[in-house]
Design a protein around this nucleic acid. Sequence first.
DNA 1: AAAGACACCTGGGAGC
DNA 2: TGCTCCCAGGTGTCTT
Length: 251
Amino acid sequence: MSEAIEAIEVRNGHLRWPISDEVYALESQNVEQVLRRGKYIILEFEHGAMIIHLGMSGSMRIVNLDAEIKKHDHLIFYLSSEKQIRFNDPRRFGSVLWSTDWRQHKLIKSLGPEPLSEDFNAAYLYRLAKQRKRAIKQFIMNSHVVVGVGNIYANEALFLAGINPKRAANNISLRRMAILVEKIKLVLDKAIQQGGTTLKDFVGSDGKPGYFQQQLFVYGRGALPCKCCEQELKEIRMNNRTTVFCKKCQN
DNA sequence: AAAGACACCTGGGAGC
DNA sequence: TGCTCCCAGGTGTCTT
């Protein structure tokens, strides 16, 4: 079954970047495919594609026509059915752009591999890390290295892999890199299964929170005892991001 | 080329 | 209770 977008109402076009003119002008277009690359959502139409990012607080929800407009509902997608999609984003870190060739769009074309794909493997990460003195945490959070690893999951994966987040990327053996890759996949996979991690304002497309936070080992647990060795977890700032780790379990 | 600093934004919590 | 201040996050861009 295909769905068409009849029109888009922009209530607040001031997101991370101004919403593309083509989005304002869009009328009665069939959505041919819905794709994803990294954290970008791609809606493909006959003559181009919409590139959507939810930033950190954005959500897109399917609602009935008579649903009350909420604060921070910035875009309304009028569908051919009796439903609407509302793009809500309190912090406006999200974006809604247009491209006639989205794969070559500058925000997309140099992204690293998908973390759950075969392309993201120990050999790849090890080879790339060879020329980087950067801390491993910043390295894996770089979307040009691998997409999808945000701050929470970087903290968790490094803990599970037993690697100190400050360790230089080029100072990690192939064997340990294999473990890190495995843990990144594990953490993301489990988080997806649980509907994500809700700390403040995250909700899924059904408006419900995620539940992964219930099994976080380190994130948000600074100064609490390590779940494995009971030593007090250390909380520091790296690249202006909260970083939590166990000095005993991670080295 | 790589790394570091900085920017964007609002809600919520802490502190007064 | 109400005000002010600070912080959290994803990720692009600018500077070094």
